[in-house]
Amino acid sequence: MTVRVDGVDYEFSSLEEAVRFALKMAKSKGAEVQLHNGTFHVE
């Protein structure tokens, strides 16, 4: 599972870890999280 934040990809071994990271980053940026074909994008 890959989480992309500001064009940088972060790899996670589990969906749970990836979701937690994506939500944490989105909250800190006041951004939204989108899921596309198994890849999260924080914008």
Rank of each mutant, 00 (worst) to 15 (best):
M1Y: 15
M1G: 06
M1Q: 05
M1P: 08
M1R: 10
M1H: 13
T2Y: 13
T2R: 12
V3N: 00
V3C: 10
V3M: 02
V3S: 00
V3P: 00
V3K: 00
R4F: 04
R4K: 06
R4A: 02
V5A: 03
V5Q: 01
V5S: 02
V5E: 01
V5H: 03
V5K: 01
V5G: 00
D6I: 02
D6V: 02
D6W: 08
D6F: 11
D6Q: 04
G7S: 03
G7Y: 03
G7A: 02
G7Q: 03
V8C: 15
V8M: 07
V8W: 04
V8Q: 07
D9G: 04
D9A: 10
D9N: 11
D9C: 15
Y10D: 00
Y10T: 01
Y10R: 01
Y10Q: 01
Y10C: 11
Y10N: 01
Y10P: 00
E11G: 07
F12K: 00
F12H: 00
F12D: 00
F12R: 00
F12T: 00
S13V: 07
S13A: 11
S13N: 10
S13R: 10
S14Q: 03
S14I: 03
S14N: 08
L15I: 12
L15H: 09
L15W: 13
L15M: 12
L15N: 04
L15E: 05
E16L: 11
E16A: 12
E16I: 11
E16P: 04
E16S: 08
E16M: 11
E16Y: 12
E17C: 15
E17A: 10
E17Q: 07
A18R: 01
A18S: 01
A18I: 02
A18C: 12
A18Q: 01
V19E: 06
V19R: 11
V19F: 14
V19P: 00
V19I: 13
R20N: 07
R20Q: 10
R20D: 05
R20G: 03
R20V: 07
F21S: 00
F21G: 00
F21N: 00
A22R: 02
A22H: 01
A22M: 06
A22N: 00
A22F: 08
A22V: 05
A22L: 07
L23R: 10
L23T: 07
L23Y: 12
L23M: 10
L23Q: 07
L23I: 11
K24R: 11
K24N: 09
K24C: 15
K24S: 10
K24F: 14
M25T: 03
M25V: 07
M25L: 06
A26F: 08
A26D: 02
A26E: 04
A26Y: 07
K27C: 15
K27P: 02
K27D: 09
K27T: 12
K27F: 13
K27Q: 13
S28I: 14
S28W: 14
S28K: 13
S28F: 12
S28Q: 14
K29F: 13
K29S: 11
K29L: 14
K29I: 13
G30A: 06
G30R: 07
G30C: 15
G30N: 10
G30K: 08
A31F: 11
A31W: 13
A31M: 13
A31V: 12
A31N: 04
E32G: 09
E32F: 13
E32D: 10
E32T: 14
V33D: 02
V33H: 03
V33E: 02
V33T: 02
V33M: 05
V33P: 03
V33W: 05
Q34M: 12
Q34N: 11
Q34W: 15
Q34C: 15
Q34P: 03
Q34G: 05
L35G: 04
L35Y: 14
L35P: 03
L35S: 05
L35C: 15
L35T: 05
H36G: 08
H36E: 05
H36N: 09
N37P: 04
N37A: 06
G38N: 08
G38Q: 05
G38W: 09
G38A: 04
G38F: 12
T39D: 08
F40G: 08
F40H: 08
F40V: 11
F40P: 08
F40C: 15
F40A: 09
H41M: 08
H41W: 14
H41V: 14
H41A: 05
H41Q: 07
H41F: 14
H41D: 09
V42I: 08
V42S: 07
V42T: 07
V42Q: 07
V42L: 05
E43M: 14
E43L: 14
E43A: 11
E43F: 14
E43I: 15
E43C: 15
